[in-house]
Design a protein around this nucleic acid. Structure first.
Lengths: 118, 118
DNA sequence: CAGCATCCCCACTGATACTG
DNA sequence: CAGTATCAGTGGGGATGCTG
């Protein structure tokens, strides 16, 4: 995700970092606890490994997530939210709530029930 | 902003709507009160009229903002946040806070003071 | 002042194949 | 299982000019 050259407002900074298509869902999944790459890949429908890694790197670069690498085979890595990551997760929670509102407006009540969001 | 065909989670819905480069700043500005198009244009540094209108339309389409059109000349229109708009504005406030954190990490304290964010 | 139409570029994304 | 490299499409965003 390319950052702008000039910022007029800190909000723009955070937004540029979060804008990626899969960023919020990644943060959402990580809020549930530590996850391996393959965990995340199987839990996030439709994401490719490349995008997952790319977004994880960008989130890590700005300290929203961090990871632990374990020695030995098979390879083991765990990703998790930093304090900063937990903080914007609060924002993501609000987005989730609003999303439910929108889908209700859109008559997708059945989908929401089916998926356990209601 | 193109919406996906399939959603696995309401969060993705909200995110797709907010993703646009200028959406959060528009919402931020509107949180201060009703604004005309030219108000917004002059307050948001770098935005073109085309993008401003496009993003306002998309936000209106999903009921984050609404507008009042007044009769007579010169033309007068006022944009404002809906209840839903005020709700995600809470999320945007958090993003602003985190943005300040990030800029502090990045030694942009002087910029933040200069702009009145500290 | 508010709003629409067009043209163009580049960044984001996706698919696929390969390495430790 | 974790991670990198390359290539191709596409749609988001910028510039500009026109209309009521």
């Amino acid at each position: 995700m390319k950052l702008r050259n000039e910022y007029t407002c800190p909000l723009e900074m955070t937004h540029d970092i979060i804008r990626g298509k899969w960023k919020p869902i990644i943060l959402w999944q990580l809020s549930k606890g530590r996850k391996s790459l393959s965990n995340l890949k199987s839990e996030i429908t439709g994401i490719s490994q490349k995008m997952l890694l790319q977004h994880l790197h960008e989130l890590a670069e700005h300290k929203f997530v961090d990871k632990i690498t374990f020695d030995g085979y098979p390879l083991k890595v765990e990703y998790f939210l930093t304090e900063r990551g937990k903080k914007i997760f609060e924002a993501i929670t609000i987005m989730q709530d609003v999303g439910i509102e929108i889908m209700l407006d859109d008559n997708r009540e059945d989908f929401l029930k089916e998926q356990g969001f209601l």
